[in-house]
Design a binder for these strands. Structure first.
Lengths: 339, 339
DNA sequence: AACGCTAATCTAAACGTTTCGAACGTGTCA
DNA sequence: TGACACGTTCGAAACGTTTAGATTAGCGTT
């Protein structure tokens, strides 16, 4: 900018005023400055600007795994929304690890991000302190966090799983395996409650040996399914509370020589583009990823626009059961209905 | 830092020296400073640091679509690699649009990213100028760019498709449909050549009506497949040069009432986690995503470590044909082999 | 006792912006 | 003719660091 000012024989203050429109500058100087900018190929340095202004027009976004298609989709939507608003987004993957997450958040804060969208991991960490002690707005995505009172957009997980399991029950299934992620994050908690309530509402017992938990990965789903299938009285259906894990479930079924849905029915959380192209077409609980991403972005953009003092807003969206053909009706359903 | 210095009754220079280890500071002052840092909860401001140092420890990464599983995986690997090296990554999706890409790159450059990894889109744009006129290192990912002479890591697309199509020919297929993305990016170009050469090597004619192109999306694959299947003399196999488009292909086959591989064989580019769990298990060309991501990261990290003057390096990796069961042998194959 | 050497610390300028308040020229009004 | 207001431009401080070079203190040598 100094060079531009010299070339145009004006002060830097005038150049700045013109660039920002903060004061009127005469046509003559305007012309000289614009010429100089073109000649020199000047680009304003956003870092210096950020230092002075205290704002970077950059936000931080952390997710556990970007390869989980749910997060991929949401990240995509969020990225687009902030792009439209002239913000850059720094993406971090926390790998389901609390220490990593804390480190990443610190990194982002050091870089003075204007806001944070966090699909949290683990329990607590520095998140609570940030919400309370700094004035960087944060919105929680997908997962609430105990003791952290801030904007959030989540799914009604309990209801979604309740509906899915109830559907299985209506098909005549009585022993329904349930595969969950680690229970320290809110969605897993809610989903588990949905499962138990659906069984209870139907007057069915909750058999603890049918509940298995893993760490969100394909291999965890595989192992859990193997255990379920080698049970003395094995389940006739399995619900997987997480998308990557259902791949493991399908592989385990294949490897053990069974087939879906003939021998065992499968339903899972999270829809993906391939759900209805292959056989079996998976019955899933679809999350409204577009809405989730947009709402999260809107909540944060609203804070960034200055609305700092509004009380925390929690948005709860509804999942949708996509019934396809990976779950088959059992003979028992007829008796049960007629009984 | 000023507050820390005051609280510890030292100068800011001393605090800085301690923090950066650029000079030895006495145990006594060290202790006072560390105490002050703890008391105040001081965090060094990375923006101010960047301004002074001329480096942000942040890189920019642009991809056409993050929902394309190939890019999802590569982004994940790259993100991890830079995370380990203490860099943040700004992610941009260019949506296969050149103007968007140019805008994003400008945005990143304004923010003084130390380097750029670009899975480019369209033709040229400001990329060429950046490589030539600035000294921000850029590495091209997946797609070369005419006239832009810089580090790059790409696949041997020609060879990969040659092998895949040759495989189909060996199975007895003679009329092989080919669905490609827009041909202005290098991989699509190379893949197309691989297709043509495979046919020619086998002494088969290249029928132009069997070649369809679309814009990388599922819907494009769907339409292209519909056209191929309504051909008077329809192909017995289809190769899709892009992953999202193959979903469209599968849907079209389903919607038209055919089945794969009984009525039509399908193979495609890019592997994904679900490839071998459902029916049919898709035969694909798997890219070594882990290696691609790591190599790209390494090339850039090497430049960032100071190796600016080495000549541009082009890494060409090999794809791997994952033969599963979405392609069936035609009766003809037996004759052809025995002939 | 004067000197030089080393180690520890400090002063102040610089990075590239924004912005406050001052200065300047010009026209208007009493 | 002087006072005043207005519109335009500028000087300089500030944002929070890093760093070159100056300063100081302590210590061993001669």
């Amino acid at each position: 900018m100094l060079h531009v000012a010299e070339a145009a024989r004006v002060s830097v203050a005038t150049v700045s005023a013109l660039l920002n429109g903060t004061a009127t500058v005469s046509p003559e100087l305007t012309q000289r400055i614009e010429q100089a900018i073109r000649d020199i190929g000047y680009k304003r340095n956003a870092i210096a600007r950020s230092l002075k202004m205290g704002t970077t027009r950059t936000i931080g976004l952390t997710v556990p795994h970007i390869t989980n298609p749910f997060f991929t989709d949401v990240v995509s939507v969020i990225q687009q929304a902030f792009d439209r608003a002239g913000y850059a987004v720094m993406l971090c993957c926390t790998d389901e690890d609390l220490n990593t997450q804390d480190e990443q958040i610190r990194l982002l804060l050091d870089r003075m991000v204007d806001g944070l969208i966090v699909a949290r991991v683990g329990d607590g960490g520095i998140l609570k302190g940030i919400v309370e002690d700094t004035n960087v707005p944060v919105v929680l995505l997908d997962r609430l966090c105990e003791g952290v009172d801030t904007d959030a957009v989540v799914l009604d997980n309990q209801r979604a799983v309740f509906d899915a399991v109830t559907y299985l029950i209506h098909l005549g299934h009585r022993r329904i395996g349930y595969i969950t992620g680690t229970s320290d994050i809110s969605p897993m908690h809610g989903r588990m409650i949905g499962y138990r309530e659906a069984l209870q509402a139907a007057g069915l017992p909750v058999a603890e040996e049918l509940i298995r938990s893993g760490n969100f990965h394909e291999i965890d789903g595989y192992n859990a399914t193997m255990q379920l299938l080698s049970l003395h009285d094995r389940p006739s259906a399995i619900f997987s509370a997480n998308n990557p894990m259902v791949i493991g479930t399908m592989k385990a079924i294949r490897d053990i020589g069974l087939s879906c849905p003939e021998d065992i029915s499968v339903a899972c959380f999270d829809d993906f583009p391939w759900s209805d192209v292959f056989v079996p077409q998976l019955t899933t609980v679809a999350q409204p990823v577009q809405a989730i991403g947009e709402q999260a972005a809107n909540l944060l953009l609203d804070r960034l626009a200055g609305n700092r003092d509004a009380p925390p807003r929690k948005l709860v969206l509804k999942g949708r059961l996509m019934i396809r053909n990976s779950c088959r009706p059992l003979g028992a359903v007829v008796q049960s209905v007629s009984a």
